[in-house]
Design a protein around this nucleic acid. Structure first.
Lengths: 80, 80
DNA sequence: GTGTATTTGTTCGTATGTATC
DNA sequence: CGATACATACGAACAAATACA
């Protein structure tokens, strides 16, 4: 469980952490990111907040989401 | 996205618009009204404000709300 | 074929804090 | 001071599709 500061919204802080993991290659294409529930547990945040983070990274074009499956690194499902 | 004047609270203006849609039959019984989130997007207002509007129409007896489902035209769930 | 678990999607309910009028 | 309005964040419940034993 990671410590979060209070001077910034949780969703921004966690989004920043996940962004780093994507750019560093810790999260690799083809492998689903942690689920909303898993993200919630790791950072001690609600699922709704985790969803907001996923949505933000998706709007940045960093990831794409497949319903009922998960989210993946890459701007879209161009990689089959 | 609809233009809102400044001489009246947003929630009153939008409540008036939705009231019209109900009375005109645009929103029909049995069909859920747009969600709080959807109302927020259509009028460019926060979800909290959309909730206030729903609450106002509910107090007028125009609609009723079913938790986790939505709001419906009709004074209550007497219509099955 | 049949369940069961997982995962995302969506909804309303609630509370807190901040800012503005 | 109260009303308006926004952002953040939690919770709870259910649906639908998928994956797996």
């Amino acid at each position: 469980m990671i410590e979060l500061r209070a001077d910034q919204p949780k969703w921004r802080q966690v989004a920043g952490i996940l962004r780093q993991r994507i750019e560093s290659g810790e999260y690799r294409p083809g492998v689903p990111l942690p689920s909303e529930t898993a993200i919630g547990q790791e950072f001690g945040i609600a699922r709704g907040t985790a969803r907001k983070i996923i949505a933000a990274l998706r709007e940045e074009g960093l990831i794409y989401t497949v319903p009922q499956i998960g989210s993946f690194v890459g701007s879209g499902p161009e990689d089959a």
